[in-house]
Write a protein that binds this DNA or RNA. Structure first.
Length: 392
DNA sequence: CCTGCCGGGAG
DNA sequence: CTCCCGGCAGG
């Protein structure tokens, strides 16, 4: 899928700015058709008119500009961008405007989890979205073929939220901004990013070795007139979002506010930035370590078991491995513990997954395959961890 | 008993 | 990090 939206298609989008139809006609073959359908769907629902529309449209545009200007950069970046555009087009509508979702039958599985039964409890909803949707003995292959793309999409979104934003901003400022060298005592100002990079690389980093190639970013900053405020502010600090933070599906549509700029409603909170990959792939059983639902500022989308009332907003701290309150614990605290105090739940840093779930009724690998076919178990089961193939 | 899986250890 | 397993708890 990533390869579909290759350069040609995206460039077309860029040049035309907003009309995806152009792109569709350009690549009329094979995979393109599928994409075309998705894009069309995207236009349809986005045309149904709320604040989202502009956001949605502006997203591909900005990334498109990005592509245009950084022509000789890396091909894979282009492809990632393409994937992101497509992902956003195909995924977010489902999340944000449920009434329209029958328009995108294929996309249901993309964001599937939160629309399902998990709404009320929200306990393992996270799992549902990412593990194979329908437990069946044959999931071994299904997992790879069906589950994987789903994950891919999520990764993309995360990734995009993490790295695309500054990039886009930089690009934007290309048109009307400048770049100042932050090297001590330098302060040189250039108008092009490439020039600035070269300047830093050659003058300060001493030669253009490949290894220093990435470092230049640290040594310059953009100086622009109005950029900082006008640029879409929300997504950067919070990749949180309605659909996933919400345990009940109703609120995802009940927030028409302007704060919904995060077009990229990426599912997971920022507290799980890097470990997400791992969790998704094999060590799903560790998920409890990193789920920490965060709510975007001002957004009324709260889970019923909202974490201690104070909305966490660490902007960028990766905290990749840090253990926070497990969903299970929060759920427990909320539901059972009568002596739950604010202070106590406010400092759950010690929390680790001590909570032992009751036995689910789902058949686990051991039961399904039997001990003698242990090699067919999921890895978690083999390691006597919480089964990841048939989560409860 | 069996089963699921947490916690912790080995490599 | 991956892999394994003791031991606990629920059924």
């Amino acid at each position: 899928m990533a390869a579909v939206g290759s350069r040609a298609g995206l460039d077309t989008i860029c040049t035309d700015g907003q009309d995806e139809l152009v792109y569709m006609q350009c690549c009329g073959q094979g995979e393109g058709v599928g994409v075309q359908k998705k894009l069309k769907a995207g236009t349809e629902w986005s045309a149904d008119g709320n604040a989202q529309q502009t956001n949605l449209l502006s997203f591909p545009r900005s990334s498109g500009v990005d592509l245009l200007y950084r022509s000789p950069e890396s091909v894979e970046m282009d492809e990632i961008m393409a994937a992101m555009v497509l992902t956003s087009l195909s995924c977010s509508p489902v999340v944000q405007s449920p009434p329209q979702r029958d328009l995108l039958p294929g996309d249901m599985e993309c964001c599937g989890g939160e629309l399902s039964d998990s709404g009320s409890s929200g306990y393992w909803s996270w799992d549902h979205g990412n593990v194979s949707p329908a437990p069946s003995p044959s999931v071994t292959e299904m997992d790879r073929s069906l589950g994987q793309p789903t994950d891919e999409g999520l990764h993309m979104e995360l990734d995009q939220a993490a790295c695309e934003e500054p990039e886009a901003r930089r690009c934007k400022s290309l048109s009307r901004g400048a770049y100042r060298c932050l090297w001590p005592g330098c302060g040189k100002v250039l108008t092009s990013r490439v020039g600035m990079k070269r300047h830093i690389r050659i003058l300060h980093l001493g030669g253009g070795s490949e290894q220093s190639h990435r470092e230049e970013d640290f040594y310059y900053t953009e100086v622009s007139s109005e950029d900082e405020e006008t640029a879409p502010p929300s997504p950067a600090p919070s990749f949180s979002s309605g659909a996933w933070t919400s345990c009940s599906s109703t609120q995802s549509q009940s927030t028409p506010g302007p704060q919904d700029a995060p077009v990229q409603s990426s599912p997971l909170s920022q507290s799980a930035p890097s470990s997400v990959w791992q969790i998704h792939t094999e060590h799903l059983y560790q998920a409890c370590a990193s789920i920490q639902v965060t709510v975007s500022p001002g957004s009324p989308t709260f889970c019923n078991w909202t974490p201690t009332g104070d909305v966490q907003q660490k902007p960028q701290i990766p905290a990749s491995r840090s253990r926070s309150v497990s969903v299970g614990e929060q759920w427990l605290q909320r539901n059972s513990a009568p002596t739950r105090s604010q202070t106590m739940s406010a400092s759950p840093s010690r929390g680790h997954c001590s909570f032992r779930k009751g036995r689910g009724e789902a058949k686990k690998c051991r039961k399904v395959y039997g001990v003698e076919r242990r090699d067919q178990w999921c890895t978690a089961c083999r390691w006597k961890k919480a089964c990841q193939r048939f989560p409860d």
